[in-house]
Amino acid sequence: MKRFHVHVNVDEIDSSIRFYSMLFGAAPTVVKSDYAKWMLDDPRVNFAISQSGRLLGVDHLGLQAEDEGELSVIGERLQAADAVALAEKSTTCCYARSDKFWAEDPQGVRWESFYTHGEATTYTNAPEQSDAAPCCGPKAAGSCC
Rank of each mutant, 00 (worst) to 15 (best):
G57M: 01
C136M: 02
A140K: 13
C94M: 11
V84T: 11
F114E: 08
V31K: 14
A103I: 04
V6K: 06
V6A: 13
T91C: 12
E128W: 10
G108W: 01
N46C: 09
W111K: 13
E119R: 13
Q79D: 09
F4G: 14
E128M: 10
R77E: 13
D34I: 04
D14A: 14
G25K: 10
R18P: 08
A132T: 12
G118I: 05
V30C: 00
V84L: 11
K2L: 14
P106G: 05
R44N: 14
R3V: 10
G118C: 00
G53N: 06
T124M: 00
S52N: 15
K37L: 14
Y20T: 03
P134D: 04
E112Y: 03
M39E: 01
A65G: 06
A96N: 10
A126L: 06
T124N: 09
L78W: 07
G142I: 07
G53K: 00
V84H: 00
H117P: 12
L86D: 04
S98H: 11
E128V: 13
W38K: 05
E104W: 02
K139M: 04
I17S: 01
S72H: 10
G62H: 01
N125E: 10
H60T: 11
E76L: 08
I13A: 03
C144W: 15
V109N: 14
A48V: 04
A27L: 08
V73F: 09
F4S: 15
K89H: 12
M22P: 01
E104N: 06
H7A: 12
E128K: 12
P106R: 05
S113T: 15
D99V: 07
S21P: 00
E88H: 04
R44W: 02
V6L: 14
D131P: 02
H7Q: 13
G75I: 09
S15T: 12
L71E: 08
M39D: 05
C93T: 08
R3E: 07
D34F: 15
T91N: 02
E119S: 13
G62V: 02
Q64N: 10
D41T: 12
E76V: 00
Q51C: 10
E119Y: 03
Y35L: 04
F19W: 11
D99A: 00
Q107S: 14
S52Q: 13
M1T: 09
S143D: 07
P43T: 10
C135M: 03
E70A: 11
P28N: 06
E12W: 06
E104F: 14
T92D: 07
G62M: 03
S98G: 00
A80R: 12
R54E: 11
Q64W: 04
Q107A: 14
Q51S: 10
D82Y: 11
T121I: 04
E112S: 07
A85K: 15
P138R: 13
R110D: 01
A132I: 00
S113F: 13
Y35E: 01
H117W: 03
C145G: 08
C93N: 10
W102F: 15
S113D: 04
K32P: 04
N9D: 03
A133E: 11
P138H: 13
P127L: 05
E128G: 02
Q64Y: 02
E112Q: 14
A133M: 09
M39W: 05
E70K: 02
L63R: 03
Q64C: 05
F19C: 07
